[in-house]
């Protein structure tokens, strides 16, 4: 964790809350944003900064599925919704298609560390199913062709 991050936690996140611990989620988000995942050292440092035990930080990190605790992900983290509305609209097909295009299975990362493929529960975009999320961005109303275009652009 660099000095800038620490200052941001102290200056921007902590003032929002009544307790230091409350800043835990946002601090972990901030750190994860920089390198895509959280290391042992990150958690220890956050714990120190927020007067928590490291195990409490880890417990938070492993309760919320968007934290990648000690789990490096590729430059693009593709998350395919596998819940009902997306499934009805062909979500599984989209998933298979991406697996084929990238040559990896769900849960894996491509050899060049460019893509990681995961499935997720409902993304809250059911009206525009099927949906995937790539890092921060949603891609909606997907078709095979759209998926190919998206991956092409990111390659």
């Amino acid at each position: 964790m660099d000095e800038k991050t620490r200052r941001e936690i102290e200056g921007k996140i902590l003032p929002k809350y009544r307790t230091r611990r409350s800043a835990c989620m946002a601090s972990m988000q901030l750190v994860q944003r920089q390198k895509g995942y959280l290391t042992k050292e990150d958690m220890e440092e956050i714990a120190r900064l927020l007067d928590m035990e490291p195990v409490e930080v880890e417990a938070v990190g492993k309760f919320y599925t968007m934290y990648n605790v000690e789990r490096p992900v590729g430059r693009y983290h593709i998350q395919v919704c596998e819940n009902l509305s997306c499934s009805l609209m062909g979500g599984e097909h989209i998933l298979k298609h991406i697996e084929r295009l990238l040559g990896i299975k769900t849960g894996q990362t491509t050899g060049d560390k460019r893509f990681t493929l995961s499935v997720v529960q409902c993304l809250g975009s059911c009206g525009t199913a099927p949906v995937i999320q790539v890092n921060d961005d949603y891609y909606e109303n997907l078709t095979d062709k759209k998926v190919e275009e998206i991956l092409e652009r990111l390659k």
């Binding site: 958690m43 035990e53 490291p54 195990v55 409490e56 880890e58 417990a59 492993k62």
Partner: peptide
């Protein structure tokens, strides 16, 4: 007063253990 154990993971994957 130590608090060195935590419930790590969610649902059936929850495990009461130490940091990592």
């Amino acid at each position: 007063g130590r608090g060195v154990l935590g419930a790590v993971g969610r649902g059936v994957h929850q495990e009461e253990t130490s940091f990592l």
